[in-house]
């Protein structure tokens, strides 16, 4: 009897239309931003690939807007040499819009801009949070825009001291998003986008998207000795887009390695 009642209930539920869904769902989530996790009491000191020991005293980034994309990260970022050789023999196939050469599909976003102190490891909540749909993302994109205030009209501002072989170079500089960044055949929109940041996350209601800015790679390839040929102002050498430090910084501050994205299902 009970079994018959249960079967009837199932039948009625089916007729009435259980699972009233059209697939997927829109979600809202918190967004928290900060610098890399470390002991905040200590200065951030690291050694660049050129052997410079760099201590940063200021590292500010205008973060946002930010998007999560279904597009895959560049294979070279996540594949070992053996896998890359295998890929030569049997290339990967991608669904439409999901290879790294296409624009992909955005599934979540943060459409406000906040100033991030990349030297502060504590995460700070972004007012308003982010929104999107509950679908897996593979990569993140940060679109860089200049910001007034502490950033002084730049998208990234940095200051610190670089030391090597007894040479100490106090420096400061900034990244301004403008036409000077546009390469031949490119556009300003393309120049401002940091794409392909690995972000294998699925946004969900009530969760938190965490973005950390890592400045330790900003000076890869930079040789600070070139700055000393100039004149220091207020005790610091200012790098520009005309010198190798400025060029390296311009490229590396827009590199996907400068950002880390994770998602926590709870805040």
């Amino acid at each position: 009897m009970k079994r018959r009642t249960f079967a009837l209930a199932l039948l009625l539920a089916g007729a009435a239309g259980c699972g009233d869904t059209t697939g997927s769902e829109r979600v809202r989530f918190a967004v928290e931003v900060g610098g890399i996790e470390r002991d905040a009491a200590q200065a951030l000191t690291f050694t660049s690939d050129q052997g410079w020991e760099i201590t940063l005293s200021e590292a500010r980034v205008a973060l946002g807007p930010l998007y999560l994309n279904t597009i895959a990260p560049l294979e070279s970022d996540r594949r070992g040499p053996l896998e890359r050789f295998g890929d030569l023999l049997l290339p990967s196939a991608y669904a439409h819009g999901e290879s790294h050469l296409s624009s992909g599909r955005i599934v979540a976003q943060l459409t406000t801009q906040v100033e991030v102190d990349a030297l502060a490891p504590a995460l700070v909540a972004v007012p308003g949070g982010g929104d999107g749909v509950r679908e897996p993302a593979l990569t993140g994109e940060v679109w860089m825009f200049n910001r007034d205030g502490a950033l002084g009209g730049a998208a990234v501002r940095v200051a610190g001291v670089a030391r090597r072989d007894g040479v100490e170079v106090p420096f400061e500089g900034s990244l301004v998003i403008d036409q000077a960044l546009v390469t031949t055949g490119g556009s300003l929109d393309a120049a401002r986008r940091v794409r392909g940041i690995p972000a294998p996350v699925t946004p969900a209601d009530g969760g938190a998207l965490r973005v950390r800015v890592d400045p330790r790679g900003w000076f890869e390839g930079a040789d600070f000795r070139e700055l000393t040929a100039g004149t220091a102002r207020d005790g610091r050498y200012r790098f520009t887009s005309q010198d190798n430090v400025g060029r390296a910084f311009s490229n590396r501050a827009r590199a996907r390695a400068a950002y880390g994205i994770t998602f926590s299902p709870t805040r």
Binding site: R26, G64, P65, V107, Q109, T111, Q113, D131, V133
Partner: peptide, 9 residues
């Protein structure tokens, strides 16, 4: 209609 592009549904 906003300062930055909005790209989700």
């Amino acid at each position: 209609s906003r300062e930055y592009p909005t790209l989700v549904p």
